[in-house]
Write a protein that binds this DNA or RNA. Sequence first.
DNA 1: TCTCGGATTGTCCATCAGGCCAATGTTTTT
DNA 2: AAAAACATTGGCCTGATGGACAATCCGAGA
Lengths: 207, 207
Amino acid sequence: MAELFVCQGSDELPRWREAFPQAIRVPPSQARAQVMHGDRVWVMSNLEGWTSLVTTLSQRGAILRVLSYTPNSAEAFQALDAGARGYAHALSPAPLLQQVELVTANQGIWVPAELLAQVVGGAFKALGGESRLQEDALALLTERERAVALAVAEGQTNKEVARRLDITERTVKAHLGAIFRKLGVRDRLQMILRISRQDARVTDPGQ
Amino acid sequence: MAELFVCQGSDELPRWREAFPQAIRVPPSQARAQVMHGDRVWVMSNLEGWTSLVTTLSQRGAILRVLSYTPNSAEAFQALDAGARGYAHALSPAPLLQQVELVTANQGIWVPAELLAQVVGGAFKALGGESRLQEDALALLTERERAVALAVAEGQTNKEVARRLDITERTVKAHLGAIFRKLGVRDRLQMILRISRQDARVTDPGQ
DNA sequence: TCTCGGATTGTCCATCAGGCCAATGTTTTT
DNA sequence: AAAAACATTGGCCTGATGGACAATCCGAGA
């Protein structure tokens, strides 16, 4: 039961490597030859013909997960329809990837919380995972800090945020400093990754 | 984070008790009062108004699973649509129930394998068939530029990227300049928003 | 062969980002 | 009432960032 990662030579995905240090990288040309029943396989959605590859390998009895740089519901459907059991952002942090691994290895389906609603149907109320943790991070902030954080998360500069909130750029910096301290990040980049992308730790229902 | 089992007085479900010895049985009348955010809840589908109960509790932030004596895809859909993350046979053996627990506790969805195709397929149809892949912003970049972009998208500084790729910080800047030009963005923030968070549009104007 | 795009590095420079120290006024909590 | 937290702004300083202009090397084509 090998752990395999099908990708182009260029993609190293350090976070993925961090999550699965013992896994094997496989070029798409050799995937069909190497994957066997029971293998756990990750496939990048930027490969040529990834859907047919996923179909083939899942019919063979492998557990398929698809990673995408641009997750969207349409692609998620393609992945699931092709037989994948998991679909996530290619740049997801290691704990999240391990969570996906855990879920899919146990006959579960894993898709990003924000796509869940669309995957299951119109009115699916998915209040789990990301949104909750996301709000946890934002919940640590004050009203004003949250406003600054959200503006910065849209890619605005301090000056632009200042104009939008009608305060001085200096004040924006003050809020940002407080935000960084509270969230334990070093700069706006890390902050964005913290509040706008999925973050998860594996839950062990250890009785 | 309690483990709760909402059922009529008659249902004892020894297998369920075996799987979760420490769990609490709750009559449906008290479920709304006792369930809190983060609780893991199992609901029997033979209860009056189980769908609204599931909806309420899942919106409250609990993790919902539905157990049925007569599993079928229609009911599975109802359960998922109401916010449940798991759906299984009420008489499933203990290890399977624990598996459902594990999967759903980790943001996964669990439905019986024989219903999987219909659930996924149904959602697929509901959204209007296959759709075209949006062009990948990363595809516009060269091999090296992509590597830089991905590293930067993880929140790394130019210096860190330089170390990782074993090039000068100056070269990193050169690549970034080319990336910004190609993607039409002004800085790394905008680039990240561009390559790692493309909005999920299902609309398909072409065709 | 000669040109073109890509990878690499350099210097110079204006701007941006954040940290540090400090201040004032308001609101909330104890 | 006193303490703590929050919102606001100031100056100063260091390092990070990105553009402009320019150079070298290399492989793929015309």
